[in-house]
Structure formats: structure tokens, C-alpha cells
Write a protein that binds this DNA or RNA. Structure first.
Length: 259
DNA sequence: ATGACACGCCGAGCGTGA
């Protein structure tokens, strides 16, 4: 995109349970591109009309009651790919790959992994490995490319409350960090950390035990960009305000501005 | 040490989340 744009990435934990809040937020902020994760519905059930009325084009990749991603944009994408390029294609519906205004944008809901040693954990690692392979085969680090979404990995010790207590747990294991590092080694940089080096800057808070009130969470919703786009990144903000609204998602939105 | 919320699943607990 030669023009400036704002990007919003937000795991909304069910579009049907969150519709009013998301619409209100988009109407206020008017981001150019919106990457939603965990829409938790099939494409035919997604409430398209109110988003179209806000001026968005909708690209959906969803399945019944679980996972699913949606990319909304004011400008019509020039390319839309659901899932990986090569079979097997993303049966959980976790990847939506679009080109909007000349920028390839991967909207990602990385598998949770459940627990170390489980099939789900192996799936998470393999999924990240496949993503790196796809980038190698189809993308270039010297072109504008953006990966954003719910990575389900806290990149470093600043990105959760008590690293010591997370040893042996998913989201902060050496295996996941290695997979993330390998993905990043394609030539991607963490846009939030361009502007903020502090610990305790979280995007997800457990619904239980007053975690949000106590700022006990994790930074797992991330925006990665290749160098040409990273240079154009002028702001990344975690916006906690929707968490104080009624019936919030357990994730807060992340807004990134590019000049 | 454990549990604590919430979603969507054809209707009740359950799988899943992180």
C-alpha cells in the first residue's frame, strides 16, 4: 500500500456474541483493515450486512462454532487465499491471506496447542513450520508483508506475568519460541516493540479471578512486518477500553498505523 | 493446590480456549 493505512487485529471470541461491541468500535475508529480471529461461525452465518453498512468488504474463512478468521477492508482485496496455499489446507480455518492495497496481509489464529506433549501441541508447531515454508516459497522479505493476529505465544519474559510459573506450559515453551523465531527469521519484526520496550503490556486477560483488573495477562496478539513495512509503522497501541464494556472478548484490540 | 469465565454446541453438560 503506497497510501497510509491503519490496521486493527482483534480476537473477538465469537462474532455473534460480540457483534454490537465490534460494530461500535469499528464505527468509532474506522480502521482501513480489520483482522478478526475466533469468529466461531460458518461463513453463511456471519452477520455481513452491518459491516458492509460501515463500508467494509468482507473476506471470511470460518467453520462451525470454532476458530475462524475474517478480514475486513475498506478497499477491495486484489487477492484472497483461504488457508495454506498447498494441501492440506487449514481445516480449522486459521489463515486468511489477502493482498490489500499492495500489502500482503496474513490474518492468523495460531493453534492454541493445549498442552506440551499433546497432538494439539505438535499440530501447533507443524502449523508454524508450514507457514514459514509458505513464506519461503511465495513471499519476499524485501517486499511489504504483514502477519498479524492471535499467535498464542508470548514472545519473551516481558509478555506475561510470571515466566517461572509458565515453565512446561503452552504459550511460553522453548519449542514455541523456536518456532516463532524461525518464522521471524524470514525477515519479520515485532511492530509493537518498535515503540514500547516495557514489560506488562498485555493483549489477553483471563476472564477469571479479576485478571484484567490486576493486569495479569499475556501479550499474544502481535503484528509482524517485513522491513519496508516496519519502517512505515508509526504507532502500535493496545486498546484496553473495550474490555470495560459489557460482555467483552478476553482479548483487546491492537491498532497499528502505517505511514 | 485448586478454581475461578466464556463461547457455541440442536437443548446438557462438554470440548475448547490460553
Amino acid at each position: 500500500m503506497t497510501a497510509p493505512f491503519t490496521l486493527l487485529t482483534w480476537n473477538i471470541n465469537g462474532i455473534r456474541a460480540r457483534l454490537d461491541g465490534v460494530l461500535t468500535y469499528l464505527a468509532e475508529r474506522e480502521p482501513d483493515v480489520v483482522c478478526l480471529q475466533e469468529i466461531k461461525c460458518e461463513e453463511k452465518v456471519f452477520p455481513r450486512v452491518p459491516f458492509m453498512e460501515l463500508g467494509y468488504q468482507l473476506q471470511l474463512h470460518g467453520s462451525k462454532g470454532y476458530a475462524g478468521v475474517a478480514t475486513l477492508s475498506k478497499q477491495k482485496p486484489s487477492e484472497v487465499i483461504k488457508g495454506f496455499r498447498e494441501a492440506p489446507l487449514d481445516s480449522h480455518c486459521r489463515i486468511l491471506n489477502t493482498v490489500i492495497g499492495g500489502v500482503r496481509i496474513y490474518n492468523l489464529y495460531v493453534p492454541n496447542g493445549t498442552a506440551l506433549g499433546t497432538e494439539a501441541f505438535t499440530y501447533k508447531l507443524q502449523w508454524l513450520e508450514r507457514l514459514r515454508q509458505e513464506l519461503d516459497a511465495s513471499a519476499r522479505a524485501d517486499e511489504p508483508l504483514l502477519l498479524c493476529g492471535d499467535f498464542n505465544i508470548a514472545p519473551d519474559a516481558r509478555d506475561l506475568v510470571d515466566p517461572a510459573s509458565m515453565v512446561g506450559c503452552t504459550h511460553f515453551s522453548p519449542e514455541e519460541h523456536a518456532a516463532l523465531a524461525k518464522l521471524q527469521a524470514f525477515g519479520l519484526r515485532d511492530c509493537f516493540r518498535k515503540f514500547n520496550e516495557e514489560a506488562g503490556q498485555f493483549t489477553w486477560f483471563d476472564y477469571r479471578a479479576g485478571a484484567f483488573r490486576k493486569n495479569q495477562g499475556m501479550r499474544i496478539d502481535l503484528v509482524y512486518a517485513t522491513a519496508p513495512l516496519y519502517e512505515r509503522c508509526v504507532e502500535v497501541v493496545h486498546d484496553a477500553t473495550p474490555r470495560s464494556e459489557e460482555s467483552p472478548s478476553d482479548h483487546i484490540p491492537v491498532l497499528a498505523k502505517f505511514s
